[in-house]
Amino acid sequence: MSKSEKKYGDHLKLKKLNSIIKKNNCEKSALISTLLDIQSEYNYLPKEALIMVAKEMDIPLNQIYSVATFYKVFSLQPRGEHIINVCLGTACHVRGGGRIIDEIRRELKLKDNGGTTEDMKFTLEPVRCLGCCASGPVIVVDNEYHSQVTPKNVNKILKKYSDGRKVKKIIGSQDKNA
């Protein structure tokens, strides 16, 4: 069991979890929104939490697992401290978004287009279009948008997060008009 799994898994703040489930009135239709809330609380969907949701909401665990694996936003694995979303929308793709993700992968030594680094610092999660198509390629780290990223300034951005310093927005090449 990894360090962070222990941190979350053993000490699930049960009260908090209860209040999330209660907030959504135990309505079966609120399953997805309950899971979203749980994920934003714990950073991923811990197994214990899903078992509890099954009990409280009276939904077979199987069905919850099925929903949790269907939607891409849910993670059943603990995620890193910083979450990197790389936009792979069409506009970012034609502007070289694929090369940005390659670069991040190499920089973080990740095998796939996604996953968490061994030191639990970063989790890479590609997304399909953030709707910032004019500023592509776009990456979002911890909800901060970085636009017009180039393979060259990827490591600059990552480094600032791994150092734990507050990051000033890094914007790639400015416009010709400017």
Partner: peptide, 23 residues
């Protein structure tokens, strides 16, 4: 019963029990 269900989506879709454990 409802012990098995579809898990994942698209090409990763498969049929199994929750967490691949005995249900």
């Amino acid at each position: 019963s409802g012990a098995i269900d579809f898990i994942g989506r698209g090409k990763d879709r498969r049929i199994t029990t929750a967490f691949d454990e005995k249900s």
